[in-house]
Nucleic acid binder design. Structure first.
Lengths: 191, 191
DNA sequence: TTGCCTACCTAACGTTCGTTAGGTACGGTT
DNA sequence: AACCGTACCTAACGAACGTTAGGTAGGCAA
């Protein structure tokens, strides 16, 4: 249904972003070369400039997408858990965040692990989006009113969730179980 | 008291490691150039080879030191909390890990944030030390016998602690308070 | 006093980096 | 038939990378 882009443009752009996200997740921003991205996509490095103006622009697009995925997951959880009990609402959002990290491509995972290593210009461009997402969590934890120090708890909670990309294996572990463990850490057992 | 090294050799080596740890923490392994390290130390890049055989060797030494700091912190906590109640023992080790992250130079912080971006050879050389430290945690959590899923909990706990290097500011926040929040997340309120 | 060791230096190497210039091949429009 | 935009290409740029070769200056030992 794209009006301005042909089918091919869209998919090439997509493949570049997919590939970059996966590589950045593994090696950090500085550890990934454009020639490496291009080779995996099946084009030459110079051809990347047909789709993006610079390496930084590719990386920034990857991070933005990563945040986008998180926010969509949040919105879905918010809709699904409307009117539910506080703990269930929290659990739904925890599960949604984990879903963003593991079930929608490497974008969110790349964002949370590699953002700190990105060049200053990229970080500064992305930081407002990051902050907005974190604000959603602060707001939720405060609103639920079952948590003593929402500020500190939010940071420890996001830390526990985000660091799971370092060790959790989607094929062997159970995301629902992980979500339950993390929810319990913040809220306590099923209340 | 050094027998084999002169005073100057020791301090130069030290300054190289200090500088590298700080830079790697900020930019990731691939994001740090030897010329950058050398400049901060006050020597030329080629002179680094008088102290280390390669960049990888410097980075590996930084990671090893980071793990060393964690293990010493662990031992101190174990000694101090001998015979204490389970929750107090857990709290002591949480506080010790945070101490390693924030109060003994950038080594441990560099290790937990940048290890994943290091070249394969470096990672493989360091992984046994990492595993040994994680095994201490698993053993402790199992032994304390107040935690439902020690395996999953250990990972979430280490995640919560390690990710604090991304946001916690030692000069503004209180490490004891942070340790208390994280301990409560794993164990529950003061029991 | 000669000689060696330590701790640096300058200069340069080959490679890889991000990036640019200037093509070509081709489907769709006019 | 002529033209244009898209999607790539080859070739090359200067800069930066890790690393090596071959110094020099100064302290210590014989």
């Amino acid at each position: 249904m794209a009006v301005t882009d042909t089918v091919d443009t869209t998919s090439a752009r997509q493949r570049i972003l997919d590939t970059t996200a996966a590589l950045v997740l593994e090696h950090g921003v500085a550890g990934v070369a454009q020639r490496q991205i291009a080779e995996r996509v099946g084009i030459k490095a110079a051809s990347l400039y047909h789709h993006f103006a610079s390496k930084n622009e590719i990386v920034e697009a990857v991070f933005r997408r990563g945040i986008d995925v998180m926010e969509h997951a949040w919105d879905d959880a918010a809709t699904a858990a409307t009117g539910a009990a506080p703990r269930a609402r929290l659990a739904a959002h925890v599960r949604a965040h984990l879903s963003a990290l593991f079930e929608n491509g490497p974008y969110t995972a790349a964002h949370v692990t590699a953002f700190r290593t990105a060049p200053t210009e990229v970080r500064e461009a992305v930081v407002p989006m990051r902050d907005a997402y974190e604000a959603r969590w602060t707001h939720l934890l405060t609103e639920l009113d079952g948590i003593e120090r929402p500020g500190l708890s939010r940071l420890a909670l996001l830390g526990a969730m985000n660091s799971s990309v370092e060790w959790f294996d989607v094929d062997r572990g159970n995301l629902d179980e992980l979500a339950e463990v993390i929810t319990t850490q913040v809220w306590g057992s099923t209340t």
